[in-house]
Design a protein around this nucleic acid. Structure first.
Lengths: 157, 157
DNA sequence: TTGATCGGAGATCATTATAGTCTCCGATCT
DNA sequence: AGATCGGAGACTATAATGATCTCCGATCAA
C-alpha cells in the first residue's frame, strides 16, 4: 500500500543520476541523455523519455536538443524536493479522494464522514516529510551496496 | 499519488463508527452490524462486508453471528493503530517495490539502484507516523464540518 | 424446529490506473 | 545533409481496484 509508481521511481533515479553527474568529480556540467540513464538502470527507454519530458515541462530539468544534447538540472539540488518530484509525475499528493475536492464536488460519504479530519492531518504530515527532503539528501551517502534498513530487518509486515 | 484504497477508507470509517458506538454515551457495548454502517456512510453493503470480514480475521474486531449479531472491537482503541488497519486491508506498507523483496527476489534496477536507501528512510518515517496514531486519536474531536487544512489552503499543486 | 437474520467465503465482472510501446515530428550539431 | 537528440500523441496490454452475486453455516426467537 501507499506505493509510488514506477514512473516516479524512474524520475527519482534519473534526477539522482543527473545530479551526481553534474556535481560529481569526473565531468561536472556534462549533459546527460535519456539513453545513458535507461541503460544504467535498466529502465525502458521510451518510458523514461516520457518521464524526463514531464520533469522538463515542470521546470526541474532543462533540455538540450540535437546531438550531444540531453538534460541538466534547472535548479540546485537543495531546491528540488522529493514532494515536487513525485507531484510532477503523479499529480497532487492525496491519501484520500476528498483531499482535492473543489467547489461542488462531494464524495458519497461526505455528509457523515468521520475520518476526514484525521486523514488530512496524516496527509499533511506525509507531505511535510516529503517536502523537507531534497535531491541533495539523496546524493552522496547512498552506497551501491544494498543495505537492509535496521528497523525493517527481519520484521514480517 | 500515495492514495489509500476505498476499502481502507471504509475500514477506517467502520472502525471509527464501531468504536464511537461502543464507547459512546447512548448504548455502550452494543454490537454493530454491517448494514447499519453501510447505510450510515453510503458504503456498498457487500463490499463493506468483505472489509469487516478481513478486519475480523486479523483480530481487530470480533464477530457475532445470528440475529442481533454484528461486530465489536476486539481491543481497546488505543491498541489499534492506523498502520495496523491499513496493513490488514492493503497488505504490508511499502512505497517502493523493493521494500519487501525476499531472498532471491531482485528488482531490475537493483544492482545500480541509487535511491533505495533514501526511499526506505522515507518509508520508515511514514510507517512510524501511521503506527503512532491510533483509533483513539480518530475519535471525539472530529467535526462534521469540513475544514481545509492550513498548509494546503489556496496552494495550487 | 423452522425461518428470518446475521456473518463467512468464493467466484465473477466492470472500470480504471499503470506500465510499456510505436510512430512521427522538430531542433541542433557536425 | 544526415545522424542524433528531445517533444508529443496515440495506442496496447496487464494489473489493481471497486463492486456484485451466490451459496453457506451459525444463531436466535417465535
Amino acid at each position: 500500500m501507499l506505493k509510488i509508481s514506477k514512473k516516479a521511481d524512474y524520475a527519482l533515479m534519473a534526477l539522482q543520476h543527473i545530479a551526481s553527474v553534474q556535481f560529481g568529480d569526473v565531468t561536472p556540467g556534462r549533459v546527460v541523455n535519456t539513453k545513458e540513464i535507461a541503460e544504467e538502470y535498466n529502465i525502458p527507454l521510451e518510458l523514461l523519455a516520457k518521464v524526463l519530458q514531464v520533469l522538463s515541462r515542470s521546470g526541474m530539468i532543462e533540455s538540450h536538443n540535437g546531438p550531444k544534447g540531453g538534460y541538466l538540472l534547472a535548479r540546485s539540488t537543495r531546491q528540488i524536493t522529493i514532494a515536487q518530484i513525485l507531484e510532477s509525475i503523479e499529480g497532487p499528493l492525496g491519501i484520500t479522494d476528498c483531499s482535492h475536492e473543489k467547489e461542488g464536488e462531494f464524495c458519497m460519504q461526505r455528509e457523515h464522514c468521520n475520518i476526514r479530519t484525521p486523514l488530512l492531518k496524516i496527509q499533511d504530515s506525509i507531505y511535510q516529510l516529503l517536502n523537507n527532503m531534497t535531491l541533495e539528501d539523496m546524493l552522496g551517502g547512498t552506497p551501491l551496496i544494498t543495505i537492509q534498513s535496521p528497523s525493517t530487518q527481519g520484521v514480517e509486515r
